[in-house]
Nucleic acid binder design. Sequence first.
RNA 1: AGUAUUGGCUC
Length: 279
Amino acid sequence: LVASTTMLLAYAQNGHIEESKKVFEGMPGRDVISWNAMLATFSGAGSLEEMERVFAGMPEPDLVSWTTLLAAYAQSGITIAAKKTFDAMPQLNLVAWNSLLSAYGKGGQIENARSTFEEMPERDLISWNSILGACAQIGHTKEANVVFAEMPRRDLISWTTMLVGYTQQENLAAANRVFQKMPQHDLVSCTTVLAANARNGHLEKSKHLFDQMPQRDVVSWNVLLTMYGEHELADEAKKIFKDMPYHSLASWNSLLSAHLVEGDFYSASQLFSQMPLKD
RNA sequence: AGUAUUGGCUC
């Protein structure tokens, strides 16, 4: 049972949802963990209806099941459904509160996020990071700064969240300052500061940052690809696309819009027909 | 614990 749950999730990780489903259906028995793994798989794939069907078939959904649902609605931007799920939960824990808080943050409902944050019986670093993200996401950098100063503890995520806030404000100077001030860097923070520079049209600097990065992943490559596309350098974008070790949906979308920006509808439609359903 | 909640690219 443990082995098949692991296998189910391994397929899901690689986007092979159909295989995950087959594993689930062929399981010798099911416990709440394998049910929840199936839920999480559909949640991650954005297959809300299938997820709901699985949930409805569960003999005994637990807190994990409920919060998986809640998070799935949040992810899809259906904040009302997330709140309804929260209200329907037989018990609550910190994860449930955090999930609701994050749902409001993702939905840009800062007031609801704030009142949830005040109302929750306890808060951990995830709660603080979530309210910080809610402020940063809608460009309230002043409020984000207040939260950041008030936080009892900060981690790399807190710092990167601030970085994202300034990036979205197109405040490159502040973004670079935060980046230099943070105690550590990782792949995500490096990619974020790269994106900040790329968005502001600093092509050379961005290329340099990219080359200097200790590690790169598909997102870092995508940032560069998107940057060239937005500056009508479709040939450069195409080169990046060829050079990158693997592609995500975002890579395809970015190259597609690179062609569209240049008005190259022929290349765009050709590329479109080459897009895999799952890459 | 084999499952759920917070940060980066496109949508």
